[in-house]
Amino acid sequence: MLYKEIHIGKLIKEMVNEYEIPMDRICNFLDKDVQFVENLYESRSIDTDLLLRWSKLLEYDFFRLYSSHLILYAPPSAVNKNQKKSDKIPYFRKNIYTQEIKDFIMKRILSGEMTYGEVIKEYSIPKSTLHRWLQKNDDTTNG
């Protein structure tokens, strides 16, 4: 799956179909009617409270898709590092590359879809980090 283009309605519908969740259960859980749910499947984005409910219903963290998008396509810049940090809002010190992100990047490199240089340029992943991932991948495939 590409994290660049997220159509949340389609992804939700795919999971509903995969898990074969009945429409009446969905409507009851969300407290919405069938037409609302059908319209939602066509939506590229939805309200966060509603997305949280879908995450609970389908037992899947849909927010992680957006976090992965941010990690890959909007890494923090040097300018942001000098900004004052709020005491009221959680601050995340650094990017944490999830295993899904690592697998996604490694798959693109190993399949020949992207070169190391293209990955570094496209996703702003430090060369040393990418090298470490490749080293670990070699260790697990050869060990």
Rank of each mutant, 00 (worst) to 15 (best):
F92Y: 13
F36C: 00
E118Y: 11
E100W: 07
R44S: 03
P126L: 14
D138V: 12
K121E: 15
I46N: 05
Q135W: 15
L30P: 04
D138W: 12
I109N: 09
I105H: 09
A74L: 09
E59W: 14
F92V: 13
L130V: 02
R53L: 15
D31N: 01
N95K: 00
L58R: 12
N28Q: 09
K121W: 14
K81G: 05
R25P: 02
L58F: 07
H69G: 13
E113N: 13
Y66V: 12
F104D: 04
A74Y: 03
T98D: 12
S86W: 02
Y116N: 10
P76L: 13
R132E: 12
V119H: 14
D49Y: 11
N137R: 15
Y60C: 04
K85W: 14
S55I: 00
S67T: 10
D33L: 09
K81V: 01
R44N: 03
K84A: 15
V34L: 08
G117V: 09
L58E: 11
T129N: 00
L58P: 05
A78N: 14
F62P: 01
S45L: 01
K56M: 09
I101K: 02
K107D: 13
C27T: 08
S43Y: 14
D49S: 07
L50C: 08
H131Y: 14
H69T: 10
P126M: 13
Y116W: 07
G117I: 05
K32E: 05
R132D: 09
K127Q: 14
Y66H: 09
L65N: 01
F63S: 01
F62E: 03
R108S: 13
K84V: 14
I96C: 10
M106V: 15
T141S: 10
M114P: 00
I120Y: 10
R25H: 03
K102Q: 01
T129P: 08
Y60I: 11
Y66D: 07
K102P: 00
L52D: 10
W54I: 02
S55R: 04
S77E: 11
D103H: 00
G143N: 05
K88R: 00
I120S: 09
P22C: 06
R25T: 11
Y116Q: 06
Y123F: 15
